[in-house]
Structure formats: structure tokens, C-alpha cells
Amino acid sequence: MITDQGLVLACSAIGAGIAMIAGIGPGIGQGIAAGYGASAVGRNPGARGSIMSTMLLGQAVAETTGLYGFAVAIILLFANPLLGRL
């Protein structure tokens, strides 16, 4: 016998897992940025400092979408808004 609350909690756990699929995008994006950064350093080793800072900045911005997914997952797990609707 599945209670209403149990069903909501189970679906929230699955939803949190699905929300973390958002981590794929930033991973690919950061990898591309790091690859181009490495090739830029290889072409122009003198500009290592500014390439590094530009790369880190771009990676941090690319990471934001993944963190939105993370925020959704954390909310579903620890501050579930759906349980109040029962």
C-alpha cells in the first residue's frame, strides 16, 4: 500500500535525479572552453594569464545552468513544496 505522501516523496526523488541531468550541458561547455583555452595557450604561451582568466570566467558562466538544475534538485529533496499540496 503506497500512501499519498510516499508517492510524492518517491516521485520527488526521481525528479531530483532527472533535474541533475542538467549537469551534462555545463560539463560539455566547460570541456569545450578548456580545450580552446589549452589550444590558445599552445599558440600563444605569453598570454597564459589572460587566457586563463577569460577561460575561468566563461566556464563559471556556463556552469550557471547546471546550478539551476542543482537548486531544483535540492529544493525537491530538502524543502519539498509538493508535500504541502497534499
Binding site: 550557471t64 546550478l67 542543482f70 535540492i74
Partner: peptide
């Protein structure tokens, strides 16, 4: 919003 969520999410994910 994105500035604060970026910092919060990164530090919180480390903490978790």
C-alpha cells in the same frame, strides 16, 4: 539572481 545562485550553488554543492 544568476550571480547569487552561482555562488550559492557552487558552495552548497561542495558542502553537500
Amino acid at each position: 539572481l544568476s550571480l547569487s545562485l552561482r555562488l550559492f550553488g557552487n558552495v552548497l554543492s561542495g558542502t553537500v
